[in-house]
């Protein structure tokens, strides 16, 4: 089942306009460079609080951000990618990670409790109990009637209250898109050790359309389009977590690097120069964002 091409239609990238593909890549790129800045800041002890990195998993968020608009967003504890690709200002996230009053939650919440409610974005903060955002997303959809995306991990999928909340959404036909970011890991314990069943099968059994798909962003958009008119629905995305559950260490070489694969695909599609420009522009922006001189200035705590 789990592979970098699972349920990815052949030559899918060609079906999408170049502008969309490059927008998606630009968001992935911006996110990657941001987290490289985070890692550097952790190494230099400028960030001293725990960080939950999303690198390796960001293609799904980038794809969703181009496809679903005006959704209430309920992200999980590992949500830098969701925040940035959906348009959260990088400097506000940087400041949150530094514990500054200019952060997204005035520096009080940190990496795993990201929230942002400005500029047309409604992203609710996670509080660290995995899967807690699933019933909350369902309740928010019930209470508001608004389309809602709920993003959680394969570990959260095992929480009993996640099933129950998905079942409630199915019963009441609530407009929730459930997205499982399946990195196959709960800390370091793999899915096959933890359970013999599939959350996608569970979602189907609850009466909602559900698919498994690799994190190819074009495939994620393709399936999201098919499902988002038939909510509630469920997508399980196979991804590879690049770093530790918490912190900047690396356990092992990830099974695949989607960022690199997207870059290669774009080059195959003739966008080499465009991605070079995006890379360069983003790198310069992030170097300024994480400027050492700036970070060494006295900061308002």
């Amino acid at each position: 089942m789990r592979s970098p091409t699972f349920n990815v239609p052949p030559n899918i990238a060609k079906q999408f306009p170049s502008e969309l593909s490059l927008t998606m890549f630009e968001r992935m790129c911006m996110f990657r460079y941001f987290e490289l800045g985070v890692i550097d800041a952790v190494i230099k002890k400028e960030i001293t609080y725990p960080v939950y990195l999303s690198s390796g998993q960001e293609a799904v968020a980038a794809a969703l951000s181009t496809e679903i608009r005006d959704y209430l967003i309920f992200a999980q504890h590992r949500a830098h990618d969701v925040y940035l690709t959906f348009g959260g200002p990088p400097e506000r996230l940087r400041d949150e990670l530094l514990g500054l009053s200019s952060g997204t939650s005035q520096g009080k919440a940190g990496s795993n409790c990201l929230q942002y409610h400005e500029n047309g974005i409604s992203m609710f903060g996670h509080h660290g109990l995995i899967g807690e955002n699933v019933p909350q997303a369902v309740g928010a959809a019930l209470g508001s009637g608004k389309n809602t995306v709920c993003i959680f991990g394969d570990g959260a999928a095992e929480e009993d209250y996640v099933f129950a909340a998905m079942g409630f959404a199915a019963t009441h036909k609530l407009p929730v898109l459930f997205v499982c970011i399946d990195n196959n890991l709960s800390i370091l314990t793999t899915v096959d050790v933890r359970r013999s069943w599939s959350i996608t099968d569970v979602a189907r059994s609850l009466g909602m359309p559900a698919v498994d798909v690799a994190d190819d962003p074009w495939a994620v958009i393709y399936h999201t389009r098919a499902l988002s008119n038939n909510l509630p629905a469920f997508i399980n995305c196979y991804v590879c977590r690049g770093y530790w559950h918490v912190g900047i260490g690396i356990d092992a070489t990830p099974e695949w690097d989607r960022y690199k694969k997207v870059e290669e695909e774009l080059i195959r599609l003739g966008h080499e120069e465009a991605i070079r420009v995006i890379n360069e522009k983003t790198r310069r922006f992030m170097e300024e964002l994480w400027d050492r001189e700036l970070l060494l200035k006295p900061l308002e705590k």
Partner: peptide
């Protein structure tokens, strides 16, 4: 959690 979600949207 569902009740809390309804509270989160006012």
């Amino acid at each position: 959690g569902i009740a809390v979600g309804a509270a989160m949207v006012g």
